[in-house]
Write a protein that binds this DNA or RNA. Structure first.
Lengths: 192, 192
DNA sequence: TGATTTTTTTAACAATTGTCAAATATATTC
DNA sequence: GAATATATTTGACAATTGTTAAAAAAATCA
């Protein structure tokens, strides 16, 4: 339940940190609350912060050609979250990042993160490992989309993340799978 | 033209390395030749190495539900290349990685890479930055796929990477865009 | 160069998925 | 709990994309 403890435990998944390193990291945090549907980043803005959350999940989305919201990703707690490309390349964010539930988060600035990288090589190891996870996650999503029918994509998602899928409204899952909510609704019907 | 010099130049894009660090890195390399169509990794194998190439490009692909080859990515020189998820998680590779042209490459083992990370923080910085690039690249591909028509996807790809697209056979671009080569052929016709 | 292989195009038809509009169902808020 | 907002389902129809098979074009190799 404690953000600080969960933050500590999460970091420990990656490397063994000395007490000093964890404290130095935690000291850079600003504690902040996000309400359900509140945005952490909006498309077009410049995202220069990283969040850590220990509860709930966030949704990444952008607008399609036709003006529909396309959900491109979900991040479930515990996790670090940022609009990755914007944060790294200091460019405008293509995606909006929205809290799907009320949550309390830690927020870190890019400046502080890079200072920590320079000072503590273990923190940079965490940074590298998180980048690797983001890459792996995107690769998985690409794989899901390329080369299989919508029905197969849905079934595969259900098999791999049954508990997560339950908590996400169908409309968001649909666009994550590259189809409309109407199509997904029909697929679900035809399966049962 | 020299692999060693190109390797050096490429690393220098990321951080300033001391002569000692570059040499230590380069000393771990095995020089190897890949013939056109030769595989660096085949799906199902365990990929425990990283390549560096200074010429040509490689293709990542897997088989679809229907047994078609689906190209999920291209890597153009100069670049580091590996079956990322397999390399990081020590799992079977889902993708095959194939040289599209004759090329000479440097090959590094995972063991050596991690030793370098531990010994030289600048090398780990390179590792982090490459992971970040892979993540950004996948995000860009996901964006291309989600929320726009096949025609728009093709046009966007053409606008952004005209020179690359020229050199890639259409059939591979098609599956990268999530469509068949026949569909892409029709789209090209309708545009001109 | 000529022969062979690979790649791209074309056409007819089938299957999948999207669009629009309305009806239900489910959640949320006061 | 009633009222409001949000989410899901349904149906009719349209548009897009896939499939198959064959022809044409381009690239590769001996």
């Amino acid at each position: 339940m404690s953000l600080k403890k969960d933050f500590h435990d999460y970091l420990s998944r990656f490397v063994n940190l000395k007490e000093e390193e964890i404290s130095a990291f935690y000291r850079k945090a600003t504690i902040r609350k996000l309400k359900k549907r509140e945005h952490f980043v909006k498309a077009g803005e410049h995202c220069s912060n990283v969040l850590f959350t220990n509860s709930g999940y966030l949704r990444f989305y952008h607008l399609s050609e036709n003006g529909n919201e396309i959900t491109s990703d979900f991040y479930f707690a515990p996790s670090f979250i940022t609009s990755y490309t914007s944060f790294i390349t200091k460019s405008q964010s293509l995606v909006s990042v929205q809290a799907m539930q009320d949550m309390e988060v830690l927020e870190f600035s890019r400046e502080d993160i890079y200072k920590l990288y320079a000072k503590y090589s273990t923190v940079q190891t965490i940074g590298r490992m998180i980048a690797e996870q983001v890459a792996i996650n995107s690769e998985r999503h690409l794989f899901l989309l390329l080369g299989q029918s919508a029905e197969t994509r849905y079934k595969e998602l259900m098999e791999k993340y049954p508990q997560h899928i339950q908590s996400i409204p169908l409309q968001y899952i649909a666009s994550y799978l590259g189809i409309t909510k109407e199509s997904l609704s029909r697929i679900r019907k035809s399966i049962h």
